[in-house]
Each structure stands twice: as C-alpha cells, then as structure tokens.
C-alpha cells in the first residue's frame, strides 16, 4: 500500500486526444471519433469515460465504439448543457480530454454462445453499439449465436447511426428492425413504440435469449415490462443506467443506489440485480 506519491498517477487528470472525425447524427447529436492510436487506452463494451473540455468541465459519456476497432474511440453526444454544448462546438483536429475507461462492462462471459436481442431507444443505442460491433467483429462473431437489433426513435430525424444501420441491414447474420414513434411523408419504415413492436413482431424463446436494453428511462421501463411478459427471466434482461456522475471512481459519493456505485459497480446491471436495489435512480 505504501507507494511513493510520484509513483501514483493523478487519477483526475485526463489525456487530450485529437478528434479525427465528427459525424452529425441529428439536430442535437453528434458522434466524435477520437484518434487514440499509440496510447494504452483499452476498454470493454459497456464502459464509459469522463470527457473534459478545459474551462468548461467534464461529462460522463458511453464509449460507443467497440474495443475491436483499434486506435479509435467514439462518443455520441447529445447537446443538453454546458459541457455537451462545448463539445459540440469543437472541430476536427481539436483535442478533447478523456479520463477512463470507467465502470463495469456488459457481462461477456454470460453472453458468449447466447442469442442476443438488443433493444435501443434514441441515443440509448450508443452504449449498446459497443457490444453490437464487438459481437459482429469477424473474429468474435462465431462466439455468439443469433442477433436481433430493435432500434427506435421518436421520429425518422431522431434516428442515430443511420450510416451504420445501413451496414447492419446488409448483413445476413443479424436481423435489424427500426421503428419510429411518428413517421413523416418520406419515411417508409415501421411506425410504433419500441415495447409494442417488441411484443408484436419479435417472437423468440425467452429461455434461449438475452435482452440488452438502453434508452430513455420510460422506454427502459416499458421494454423491461414487455420482455417479462414475453417470458424473459430477470437475470436475462441487461440494461445500463445513468446517474449524475463526477469522479467515475466510486469516490465523490453521488451516483450510488444503496451500497452500489453506478460508476464503479455499474453502469451495466441485470434486471434481477435492480430488483434487489431500492430504485433510487
């Protein structure tokens, strides 16, 4: 335990990485691809990082790229307040501070050799995407069984990762279903709320599938309900939570649900775990 202070790196100090590319997704969401080649940054699907804009502050953001995509990190960010707006003002080649990775990961050992049903809502697809692309990686794909992705947003304009949905749609080793709450004149796809589409259009043997969900709180709530109705066991429903976070290290004291720190023991929990927690989130 006795380490000389100079052997201890500053856990609050971010590293600055250049932005390689900025992909506009919707009116208020952009995806930022950072060049981290040559760094020792290594994450697992489901983890997040604290992003830092000097003079403004930090925000916890899910790492949406898969660790199988070497040399880069991607973050999809919705503009809601001071830090996210400042990130949106950055240009390609600007540098962004990154601390992490933090939190647990999707439970990969429980997911291998399983059928995976991903259900995402809005920007909630971002954390799921790290696992989707991990599973779809040529080397990893044989480790997993069937894959279904159900993705929904409020309107066609609110769908994120449209560029990647195209790639996923072309693949024969997965089923992609996209839905919107309200369509428009140009939209030809499915219309309907995610939980309803799930119940009506997805027929799977609940004992042989894992449901992995992320989205706005209300969508998560009704999607869990739908999965339970479909016969899913709570331990086979996996979700990720959001809390106000500062340190990401289980120290600053604000993100706990009972004795569990969402930044450290989470953000990924099974519904079975959540059932044993007090619901203060």
């Amino acid at each position: 335990m006795v380490l000389a202070p100079d052997e201890v790196r500053n856990i609050y100090l971010p590293t600055l990485y250049p932005i390689q590319e900025i992909i506009p997704e919707t009116t208020d969401i952009k995806t930022f691809r950072l060049d981290v080649s040559g760094s020792s940054f290594h994450h697992q699907p489901g983890q997040f990082a604290e992003l830092f804009v000097p003079g403004v502050g930090e925000a916890p953001i899910s790492i949406t790229s898969s660790p199988t995509q070497k040399g880069i990190l991607e973050f999809s960010i919705k503009r809601v307040g001071a830090v996210t707006a400042a990130i949106h003002r950055l240009n390609s080649q600007d540098r962004l501070g990154v601390r992490g990775p933090y939190g647990n990961t999707f439970p990969l050992p429980d997911l291998v050799h399983q059928n995976l049903l991903f259900v995402g809502g809005g920007i909630g697809l971002a954390p799921l995407r790290s696992l989707v692309n991990y599973v779809l990686d040529t080397e990893k794909r044989p480790d997993f069984q069937k894959v279904i992705i159900l993705y929904g947003a409020r309107s066609p304009q609110d769908l994120v990762f449209k560029w990647e949905l195209e790639t996923w749609k072309k693949r024969t080793d997965l089923v992609l279903m996209v839905t919107v709450d309200r369509g428009d004149d140009h939209y030809k796809g499915r219309v309907g709320l995610v939980p309803n589409v799930l119940k009506e259009d997805v027929t799977v043997n609940p004992d042989l599938w894992k449901g992995i969900i992320c989205g706005p709180p209300i969508m998560i709530k009704f999607t869990i309900k739908a999965l339970l109705e479909m016969g899913f066991h709570p331990k086979n429903i996996i979700t990720t939570l959001e809390m106000r976070m500062k340190c990401g290290l289980g120290k600053c004291g604000r993100c706990n649900i009972g004795p569990h720190y969402v930044c450290k023991d989470g953000p990924v929990f099974t519904y079975e775990q959540l059932q044993h927690m007090p619901g203060e989130y």
Partner: peptide, 30 residues
Amino acid sequence: CFDLSTEGRLKGYQLKTWDACMFPKFTLHA
C-alpha cells in the same frame, strides 16, 4: 463527498471541492 469543477476559461484549474448529499444539485440529472 466532493465535486469536480473548473475555474477559469483559457487558463485555470480543475478543482476538487467539498460537496454534500444534503443539496438537491448533488444528484440532479441532466
């Protein structure tokens, strides 16, 4: 419990300051 915040625009410091669970802002989501 503590907060992390910035002080200064173009030149400044990242601060670690006391915070407390008694204040509503402590856990307020975005």
